[in-house]
Design a protein around this nucleic acid. Structure first.
Lengths: 298, 298
DNA sequence: ATACACTATCTTTTTATGAGATATTTAGAG
DNA sequence: CTCTAAATATCTCATAAAAAGATAGTGTAT
C-alpha cells in the first residue's frame, strides 16, 4: 500500500471520476486505474463502483478513513518541515540552575507565545551533566558554562556572567588566606563549572584544601551563606536578584576569574527539528551578538 | 515519502542499527541507507546519527511521531481487512418499519455485542425508498419486501411474513365489497410494498378505488384502525405484538396475497466492508435457511 | 595501532511506474 | 433497441526506481 495510491484513491472519492482524479494529481487515467486496482487487490475488495459517477463501495468508505489519516499525517509532517509557520512537536532544553532562573524565562516565554503548540521540556543541572545529556540525545540543546570541547556542535555565546564572591558580611577586599582556609565554601554538586572557579580562586590565593559543601539550589546556598556558614561564588545578576531576600554581601572578583560565558550548544544545524531550528533562530535575535556564532573546528 | 521508507526508519529507530533494521524488514543494509537518505532529502534534515549506535536526531524524533501515525493507520487498515477479529467502522442498514420493530432488534443486539466498535446506523423507510438509498450508496444494505429487480445485488430471503387484514371488529370472512368500498384503508406512505398488497387485495374483490390514508408509523395506523377509521394490512407478527395495546382484530388473508418475503439486499460481496461482511455472515446463521441465498442472473 | 563492525557507495539485475494507444464498458439519447 | 459519447480497462513500451550484492570507507573498541 503506497501513499501515492491512497492519494489517488481519495481524489477519486472526492471527484467521483478517474479522469478528474488523474488531472488533479497530474497523471493519466490509466495510472489511476492501475493504482486503484492494486489497492483493491491488497485489501481484497472492490473499493469503487465504476458505474457512471465513480462512487466508493462500502469497503471503499471503510478504507477512506484510514487513507485520510495516513495522508493527513503525511501532509502535516511535510508542512512541519517546510513551512515556517505553525510549529509543533517537542523542544527539550538543558540549562544550568542560574541560567534557568534569570536568563531563560523571557526567552522561553516569548518562544511559547509564538509557538504554543511546541511542548517545551526544561532540564536543570550542572554543566557536565548537561553535556552528557546532550551527547546522549536526551536533550536537544543546552545552556552551559564554557564552550564544549566536543567537535561537531553548534555553539553560540549566549550570555556573559560576572562571578562575585558572596559572604555574610560586607567585604572591601578578598578575605585573607587564613580566613578563606578556615571557612567553608558552598557550591553546586559535582559538575558545576562555577565550582571549578571557586577552586581556581582559592588556588590563586594559595588555599588548596578548603571545605566545600554541595547544594542543589541557589536558595539553599544563599540561605546558608547569610547564616554564616561560609562563602560562595555566583553570577552577579543572580546574587542581586536575591539581595532583598537574604542578608548577604558580595565582592567583585578579578576579571580573569570572574568572567564566565554561558554558551548555547546544540548538534549540527542539519539535524535540527523545526522546533529547535526556530528556537535557535529566535535566540540569535535575542542575544543580538550575531557575530559570535562559533563553530569548533572539525 | 513512502510508507516503506518510514517503516525502515522506525525500525532503525527501534533497533539502533541499519543492519538490524534491514534484517527485520527482510532486505539488505544498502537499501536501508538509501531509504533513510531519501527521507532525509525530502525533509531537508539529517534524521539519524550514524555514530556507532544509530540514534535519531532532533529532526528524526519529530518525524518519528508522524511516521508512527502513518504506519499505525496503515497497519490498522490492513488488519481490518485481513483479520476477522476486532471489527470497527460503520454499518448503515436500511429497513422497513415492520422489520425494524420486530425482526431486527435481536439481530442488531447480537451484532453489537460481538462488535461494539462498529457504529451502526439504521434508516427506516418504505421499500421503494430503501432501494433508492441502497442504489445511491447511502446505506450499505437493506431489508425490503420482495426481491430487487436490479442486477448485481446480493439477495437473501431473510424473513417470511404473513399479512393479515386488520379491522376494528372481529371478522370471520373478508368483508363484503360494499363495506370495503365505503371504508378507508390505512397504509404507509408511497413506496411501501404492503400498500401494493392492499391494492391487490381490493382489486381481487372488485374494489378499484378505495380511499387510502398514509401513515408514518405502525402505532398511528393501529390506533386509527381501533378508532374505527378503517382497515389496514400488516404482517401478523406485527399485529400480534400490538393486540394488547389496541382494540383491533385481524383476519388471515388467502395465501397468494398474504405471503410476503422480506429480503436482505446488499451490493456484490466483493464490495463489502469488513463490518458488512461480518453482518451478512451472522445473518446467514441467524436465518438458518442457508440454501436460500439468491443471486439474480447477470 | 589494529581489528572489527557498521554504514556509504557503486554496480547490476529486476521490478515498478508513468504515459500513450487502443479496446471495452456504460449511460443516456433517439 | 441501437447508436453515441464518455468513462474505465487493458496493453505496450520506455523510463525510472528499487533490491541485492560487492566493495570501500568510517568509526569504535580493544
Amino acid at each position: 500500500m503506497q501513499l501515492k495510491s491512497l492519494r489517488l484513491f481519495t481524489t477519486v472519492a472526492e471527484t467521483g471520476s478517474f479522469v478528474a482524479a488523474a488531472e488533479r494529481q497530474h497523471t493519466v487515467q490509466s495510472n489511476v486505474t492501475a493504482h486503484i486496482k492494486k489497492l483493491e487487490e491488497e485489501v481484497g475488495a472492490k473499493l469503487v463502483y465504476r458505474t457512471g459517477q465513480a462512487r466508493l463501495t462500502s469497503a471503499g468508505l471503510a478504507l477512506l478513513e484510514y487513507a485520510e489519516r495516513m495522508l493527513d499525517a503525511h501532509d502535516e509532517a511535510l508542512s512541519l518541515f517546510k513551512d515556517n509557520e505553525k510549529l509543533c512537536g517537542r523542544l527539550r532544553i538543558g540549562a544550568m540552575e542560574t541560567t534557568t532562573a534569570l536568563r531563560l524565562p523571557p526567552i522561553l516565554a516569548a518562544y511559547h507565545a509564538a509557538h504554543p503548540e511546541v511542548d517545551i521540556k526544561l532540564k536543570t543541572g550542572p554543566t557536565a551533566e548537561l553535556v552528557e545529556l546532550l551527547i546522549a540525545g536526551q536533550v536537544d540543546c543546552v545552556f552551559v558554562a564554557g564552550r564544549l570541547e566536543h567537535r561537531r556542535y553548534h555553539l553560540l555565546k549566549a550570555f556573559s556572567e560576572r562571578l562575585v564572591l558572596v559572604g555574610p558580611e560586607p567585604m572591601t577586599a578578598i578575605p585573607p588566606s587564613e580566613e578563606l582556609l578556615s571557612s567553608a565554601f558552598l557550591a553546586f554538586r559535582q559538575g558545576c563549572s562555577y565550582r571549578q572557579r571557586i577552586e581556581l580562586l582559592l588556588a590563586s590565593y594559595g588555599v588548596t584544601a578548603a571545605r566545600i559543601f554541595e547544594f542543589g539550589t541557589v536558595d539553599a546556598m544563599l540561605g546558608c551563606v547569610s547564616a554564616g556558614m561560609g562563602y560562595t561564588v555566583l553570577p552577579r545578576v543572580t546574587v542581586e536578584a536575591h539581595l532583598h531576600r537574604f542578608s548577604i554581601h558580595y565582592l567583585e572578583l578579578p576579571k580573569p576569574i570572574a568572567e564566565v560565558d554561558t554558551y548555547f550548544a546544540a548538534p549540527e544545524p542539519d539535524t535540527w527539528s523545526p522546533a529547535l531550528a526556530r528556537f535557535v533562530d529566535n535566540l540569535h535575535q535575542t542575544v543580538v551578538m550575531k557575530d559570535s556564532i562559533l563553530h569548533t573546528p572539525l
